[in-house]
Design a protein around this nucleic acid. Structure first.
Lengths: 140, 140
DNA sequence: TGTGTTTTTGTAACGATTACAAATGTAGAG
DNA sequence: CTCTACATTTGTAATCGTTACAAAAACACA
């Protein structure tokens, strides 16, 4: 995992010029591990970066995804989320509180029958349901 | 799996009145196992059902998904696909030919650590890459 | 300081999906 | 058979997330 204090170097190592928006957006992803949407990132950063445009947030995240330093999470069809943790892991979304949580994945998870016919480049595991906190709140 | 010849009964068993559009759309899903999009379904059915509206295709598929007789596949963020096979299985999308293929899933696949904190209602496994056919075409 | 390139910005366009209300179709009572 | 209430379908307009585009700003480097 990347250290929040060395974001500039991290971006440079991935051939990305560390401009202010890029550094701030990557810092935001590293600090906020709740898989934010473009709107959340934009809303939270626009006070600090007063001239920030939402287009810049889109452009920057697209760049991060292309460079492989950010994951694009498509667990819900009407909202795209982003994750600076690029290790292979799954996600669970609670339909009650809307939260998205990480799931660790077994190393043998993707040894599926028939998989030899496909050269896999991306893995996405999305589960949906109700988290324990919401479940207990409803049933009490 | 549902028999194509008993679609009317199948819909009735799921409290869905078997109108012409509904029967035709379900038949389409049962015959075309390539995980079609709304546009594909609409284009292919509009000659047979001359008055068909794209809104009806959206409405009908939404109804099927709500009733649990059709799966919604969100493997690509800009296209929603549908699948009449509601058994738990995964999908692979080839970024070269665009095809979406079924993957069988091991029964122990979702015994993930930490899963006891979540009551799972939906499973989605999406893999992306290049299929063997496209791979060999490119490298020859 | 000047110049060419990269990045950012704001507006307009786009496309998939949904909202809505009118039109049509259907089932059951009388 | 006809009437009536309800369900379904339809077409248009609206919505919303995202992208295209060109101008403005920032930057690197001679």
């Amino acid at each position: 995992m990347v250290d929040v204090n060395s974001v500039e170097r991290f971006l440079q190592n991935n051939d990305i010029r560390p401009s202010a928006p890029r550094v701030k957006i990557m810092e935001y992803l590293l600090v906020h591990r709740n898989h934010p949407t473009v709107d959340q990132i934009y809303s939270d950063l626009k006070d600090e970066l007063t001239s920030l445009s939402k287009t810049t947030v889109y452009n920057t995240l697209k760049l991060f995804v292309e460079r492989g330093i950010t994951l694009l999470i498509n667990i819900e069809d009407n909202e795209t989320r982003y994750d600076a943790d690029t290790s292979v892991h799954g996600h669970f979304k609670c339909r009650s509180c809307g939260g998205v949580f990480d799931l660790s994945i077994r190393s043998d998870m993707f040894q599926l029958s028939g998989i030899e016919n496909f050269e896999v480049e991306e893995y996405h595991l999305y589960l949906k349901g109700i988290c324990r906190v919401c479940k207990e709140r409803v049933c009490s």
